[in-house]
Each structure stands twice: as C-alpha cells, then as structure tokens.
Design a protein around this nucleic acid. Sequence first.
DNA 1: TAATCTAACAACGA
DNA 2: CTCGTTGTTAGATT
Lengths: 273, 273
Amino acid sequence: MAELPEIAKITHQMNDELRSRVIDEVIILQEKCTNVSVEELKCRIKKAVIEKVYYKGKWIIIAFTNGENILLSLGMGADVLYYLDEKDSSDKFQIKVIFKDNSCFTIRYWWFGKFLIVSDKELCDEKNTKDIAITPFDKEFTYEYFKGILGGKKTQIKAFLLDQKNVGGIGNMYMHDILFMAKIHPQSKINELTEEEIKCLYDSILYILNTSFNKGSFNYEMDFYGQKGNYKVEDFLIGYKENQDCPICQNPIKLIKTGSTSSFICDSCQKKD
Amino acid sequence: MAELPEIAKITHQMNDELRSRVIDEVIILQEKCTNVSVEELKCRIKKAVIEKVYYKGKWIIIAFTNGENILLSLGMGADVLYYLDEKDSSDKFQIKVIFKDNSCFTIRYWWFGKFLIVSDKELCDEKNTKDIAITPFDKEFTYEYFKGILGGKKTQIKAFLLDQKNVGGIGNMYMHDILFMAKIHPQSKINELTEEEIKCLYDSILYILNTSFNKGSFNYEMDFYGQKGNYKVEDFLIGYKENQDCPICQNPIKLIKTGSTSSFICDSCQKKD
DNA sequence: TAATCTAACAACGA
DNA sequence: CTCGTTGTTAGATT
C-alpha cells in the first residue's frame, strides 16, 4: 500500500535515525524475499555502517559505507518498525536488523516484499530499480517535464501513471483522487487529453500527494516509530467510497475494473472522452 | 508469400547457379530495405565472390568469401529472377545485382522486403535472424524435438507455429492445411493437445510442406528462373476455399479471424477443445 | 492472400 | 493494495 507520501516519511525517519548505526546481526526468516543466500547476505552486511537512507520510487535504499546497499520493497504493504532496545521488539517479522547498540528494526511483510543486497557497482544495473523514474516530490518534476514524458502516447492515462518507469511513487490508492480531481477518466488515452487537462492532472498529482505527506501520510500505515499518519479515509475525495455521493455532483461513486486494477470514479465528472 | 518450400527451392537454385560468381555492381532503388547507406553497401560488396547461398527460416543468406553476407527477406512476397545476360532483365525491380560475367538477378518486392549486409562477425548477433529456429526440412526436426519445444505452453497452436523462434519457415499459407489435416483448431491451446494430436500435427507439417516442395512449390510464386511451381490452389485441402465443401465432412469451409491473421477452417473437423 | 516489429493490454503467479 | 513474465492484439512499416 505504501506510496510516495508513506515512503518519503519513513525514509526520512530512517535516514535521521539510522545514519552511522553499525549492523550487528540480520535475521531472515523468509529467504524468498532476498537475492542471495542468507549466509552471503549476513557476511556482506556484517559490521557495515549505514551511510544514508533514501528512496527511489517506492523502493527504500539503505546505503552502507562499505559499498553495499540494501534495497527494500514493501510490496503490497509492510511495517518497518524501529526499537531502541531489541528486547522490546515483537517476534512477528520476516526480517530483523539488529545494531551494535542493541537498537533494531523489524520488517513484517504482508505480501511479496523484497530485501535485496546490491553493491555500489551493481546498483546502476539492478533490474528492479534502474528504470524507475523521478517522483512528483523531486524538484525536476516540473510541469514541462511532465508534459514531455506524456509525449503523444496512446496509453491509458492510469496505466501510464502507475508504470514506475514513467513516474515514480504513485500507486493505486492515491490514483483515484488524483484522476477525480483532474476530472479525467482512468482509461482516457493520453493523446486525447487537452493541454488544460494535463495541467490540471499535474496540479492534482502534486496536491494529493503533498496533502497526504503534510498530514503525516496515510492513517492505515505505521511509520518507523509505529505512529499512524493523519491522512484518513475521510480525507479521500472518492477513493474507497463506493456508492457514496460524489462531492461535486452527488452521483454515486462507482468501482470499476480498469485492466488489472480497480478504480473508484464518478462517471459523471470523469468521462472517457 | 514465400514459405519454406518456395524458399528452399529458390535457395537451392541460387546456390547452384551463383557459387563463385563475382559481384560487379549493385543497384538499390529502394533504400529503406537495407541497413547501411547505399554507398557503404556497394563498397563492402564490390568484387565480392559468392561462397554459398543457404537459408535460415524464411531468410535467404548469400555468403561471400570476403567475410560479408547478404540477408534477404522476401517479406510479403517478392520475385527473385536470374538473367544470363543483364541486358535481358526487366526494369521492374527494387534491387539488381550484376556479376562480372554480365549475368544478374533482380529482386522485386511486393511489400516490405529486406536486403541487409552483415559481416561474418556480426552475423550471429543479427537481430532479425539470430533467434530463428530450425525448419521442418532439417534432419534435427524429429518428432521428439517437436514435442519438446511444445513444452506445456499455453499459447494458441497457430501463433506458436507462426513464430519463427519456435519453428522456422511456416507462414500463414500452408498453415490452413497443416492444421486441418491434423484436425486441430488454430486457437487450440498447446497444453490441451493430446499426444495423438501432436503426433498427427508433426506428420501434417512434414506432409504438407514436403508435398508442395516435391511438386516444385507454390504455383503463384516464380522461382529463380521465372518458372512457376506445380503445387496449385486446387492442391490445397481447405486453404483459400471459403464456402467450398470440407473434403472430409462436406461442411462449408469458414474464414475466421485468429489474432492478427485469418484462418480457413472446417469448424466441424477442427474443434477448439 | 502474404511478414515482422512494436506498443499496449490482459491474465497469471509469486 | 505489488511487480514481473507471458501471451494476445492492433497498428505501423516503404
């Protein structure tokens, strides 16, 4: 579930908290989420010092001073929880990272998370992350840039925005409101959007994601300290509000299938063409 | 149009006729069918001596002793015609290759042909041809081999057989009869075929293609000497015979859309499952 | 009638 | 709610 606002928040917290922390031990209970043997991973990360934590799209990257990196994908949702003292940590986790000072963090995946180790040298070729585009939180994500990547493509706008090679960090959850706010149907073809619609879409992306971030991100997700954000389901414009009234026109909100994802839309405000 | 029987015939003729012939000049009237500038092509092929002519799938490859190769694709159909004396050749062509002894051959594409030059070194990486599979005329195309490449795939059988990465040389024209003879619907899933059906399909592929080859290949196509083959439309079992009676059950033959191609079928003899 | 590449799209699995 | 792979289709190519 975690999308850009949640990823940005927890990454900032991890970076502030964990810089210079020294790894003591890593416990991996779910081997399938990593890319090398558990032994190799432990060996490459042993006594490593955290240089910084940053994100690329929805991936959290922990860079170590020894030239290694941990690439963390939360998949369909995961808790990443910090404990000042490892003894206080829950035993419900797939991965636990313990530091020399006895602090630790645990990762509990809901579904399909990743915990990969990649050297600095391999990082630029790493297939999961190498093609991820910049996010709407980046300075470079200007309106001109956005208009440029849309090109004259014939793709459906929602499929395009969900593709991390085009825009990093947007998932299905915030998509509903972004498209609703721009009054664009998820299956509208990009090359049929007007200049005004594109401008409005750009503004909507920034507005929706920034509003959540500024409220501490989504309320169902826990941050690094186990706290929940203040952006609540009530704050959604139409997302996850099937059959409730559209806030603009009072028509009932519909849940439709759009390719492999579902979309909440107001089919009166958001016309296909 | 040219498929394996036509390609095999003309390639044999070219190989027999052109071995040791020395290039004098190449005239390219359609630049888009080649991969380098006309000047570079002329330069690399000038005075080159033909070592042999062979085929890979539907591609005809002319190998020169100087380490260059011409890769010839007939696309949707083309005449490749030999003239003992260049003065006798027609001026309807996109490409003409003239030899030192004043013999020549012309190529007249119907639609989308290719005339590429590739060095021996680059040949194994050449993207159009590197992944083409062996053809049913190869000794290695045994029943065991054929059963092996089918694997447990979920693809439609016709799409699979048309894909040159799986089997080289089969096109849409002979496909109709191959599938009809095996009593298999073009959209049958491979993993739902019985062992008997696969055996029958293998036999049908060899029977149909060999029968055409043995009759001098398709009658609408001209060979290297301008002669037409003796495998006629009347020899087709059901191909291109819409509304005529199925030779087995007398039901009318239907023309249906199957993906991007059309298929003549007897929907009584060829059931989807 | 015919060939192939590509982008977009859908279905499935992990 | 993810992301990747595979298969399918429509469009374009000169």
